[in-house]
Write a protein that binds this DNA or RNA. Structure first.
Lengths: 146, 146
DNA sequence: TATTGTTATACTCTATAACTATA
DNA sequence: TATAGTTATAGAGTATAACAATA
């Protein structure tokens, strides 16, 4: 638990954090490496790559979107042949969403492009700044999940 | 300039960064402390608090949005009495956007609420993680501006 | 009766294109 | 002719509410 007696410092930090996250997310939306996939779709594929497979409800909770939104996202991914929907073995209300092999190939390809884009953007950072950001990336993910 | 021979590490970091930024931005949109202000409006007020005043065009460039979007954002802020629009002293095509006193009061109030929200969320982080995030906040902002 | 997922609908935010006024 | 800002319009993404099927 952070020491919140340093309220002023924390307030400045959270200000910068919020502002930076919002602005960066806006740029990420537009400078995305794969034109055919929205950030939300990309994020779901990333989650599936980590988890293996999940139900739409689980995905909605993990991605912090409402179930109807996840229905739409999963449907789009299925149309593009990137996920497969199968009946749940124990509960016939639920479905199981699984990543296809095509998604794995696409993610690998996308990873290469992303590095190129990152290299260009990170060219404006010095080594220390980049190290700071690399250390913060997993914490940011954790924070987003809390 | 980062050493990009560590491509695999960098790829993992940017993955986590992108994913974390997108998810966190989605949560920030909904868990915002002031219900009457969108994240974009909030961000513009933050910029104005730092810069003093600016023209709509300058704000659009700084926030990485197109001019028509900034027109709308500024109009909403004016409706809420948070900014004032004045004619530019030298160029009659331009306008000058200035923060009102009401905005300053609101920002101060908002800062308190934000701390409360942050304290709750940050409760799930340990001291090191929080320190990492605090160090990364300004770098994130810089990255968003590059 | 509660829960999972879907359908129907509306809202918010942003962008592009076309326009006005000024430089 | 170029630039600052606005208006009109369209598109993407998400949410809420109502509904169907299953537990």
């Amino acid at each position: 638990m952070p020491d919140l007696s340093r309220a002023a410092e924390d307030a400045a930090a959270v200000n910068a954090l919020r502002s930076g996250v919002m602005r960066l997310s806006r740029r990420l939306k537009h400078q995305r490496v794969d034109e055919s996939l929205s950030p939300a779709e990309m994020s779901v594929l990333g989650t599936l790559a980590r988890c293996g497979s999940a139900t739409p409800g689980e995905l909605a909770r993990k991605e912090h979107v409402q179930p109807p939104s996840m229905t739409r996202i999963v449907a789009l991914l299925e149309t593009k042949g990137l996920v497969r929907l199968e009946p749940h073995p124990e509960d016939r209300r639920q479905k199981v969403v699984t990543q296809t092999e095509r998604a794995e190939v696409m993610l690998e390809e996308s990873r290469r492009k992303r590095n190129a884009w990152l290299a260009e953007l990170a060219g404006g950072l010095d080594e220390d700044e980049w190290a700071t950001l690399r250390a913060a990336a997993p914490v940011l993910e954790k924070l987003a999940h809390l």
